[in-house]
Design a protein around this nucleic acid. Structure first.
Lengths: 170, 170
DNA sequence: TCTTAAAACGATATATTATATCATTTCAAT
DNA sequence: ATTGAAATGATATAATATATCGTTTTAAGA
């Protein structure tokens, strides 16, 4: 148990099978909600699916726009209530520095994760880094601070976008 | 160069001389701006002073309220423009998870800091922890991610508020 | 099956945070 | 003194989020 799991990051945009991501996410959500007796209604399921449209965090009002095409009477609370449910069950995360939401690739396990967020393509990769968590926990403990939630969001350029920016089009 | 500086945290509310904090902050700001040829106007100076009213991050509209008592024609842009200046010069930080602003106790040196934020008293303590920064840098590097900014915000209970909650009033 | 209480959702209003834009004033360097 | 740039005033509006109350749906028990 040394360090850090290594889930594949979603930055390799062309390579990964995104419809598979979405399908996995929806299946996990269904089984998790069933196990918990939580009601993944069709609205909530659809909002989750919309969040998973891409790996870039999406704002509540962008979700509302998309939802409006399907549901005539969608309003802000429609979306925010679904988002709240999804957050409570760990099916999505809120990205504080963007006021936006992104799907969680490993729901169920309560976890404290970190995000690498590309300023160019917008993709946010979730990581579970034991060293980062340990460093934070140790420092907080040394301060006598009782940790409840951790927000770690790293902004920068993903590998693909570094290439594009550096060598690519002027 | 082992690890971590140790500035006194502001959680010991009664103990620290807050007027001294404010005075220090304003003096640092003045000398820093002078060195840089940046104009710390009376408005900007006053906004900085208002941010430093406490160690709890304060929202832009709370600042606007206070400012309105003194400046009849203060409007949102009045505050936001001053905040932008203060941010650019590292005199304050934005706390993303609160949409609020807090004074920086060691401006001038560009730094990547972390916050311990008490959910009870609201105080945000800024830390410079080399281990946390190293852990994040190492993980990002391993992912090929080029870091530009780091947001680390830890929510929980400060020592004083743990005491109050645990033993204090029911 | 019918009843019913809770949960979810619809509908409307409004709060909170932030920015765009253009006019006017202030400031420092000529 | 003149002037161009920076700062501020003034107004409007965008973007994000929540409060509240009425209606519908749902699951569980009578």
């Amino acid at each position: 148990m040394m360090s850090s799991e290594r889930p594949a990051l979603p930055f390799d945009a062309e390579k990964h099978d995104h419809s598979q991501c979405v399908a996995d996410a929806l299946r996990s959500a269904e089984s998790l909600c069933e196990r918990r007796g939580a009601r993944l209604t069709s609205l909530r399921r659809r909002v989750l699916e919309l969040v998973w449209t891409s790996h870039a965090p999406v704002g509540a009002y962008a979700l509302l726009d998309r939802l409006s095409h399907e549901r005539a009477r969608a309003a802000p609370p429609t979306v925010y209530r679904s988002l709240e449910f999804l957050l409570q069950h760990g099916l999505i995360h809120r990205v504080e520095s963007l006021n936006a939401f992104v799907g969680c690739p490993h729901p169920g396990q309560s976890h404290s994760s970190q995000f690498l967020i590309c300023r160019d393509c917008g993709i946010a990769a979730e990581m579970l880094d034991a060293d980062i968590n340990r460093a934070i926990a140790e420092r907080a403990a040394a301060c006598g601070f009782a940790v409840e939630r951790k927000t770690v969001e790293v902004r920068g350029l993903c590998p693909a976008c570094q290439t594009r920016d550096g060598a690519g089009q002027p």
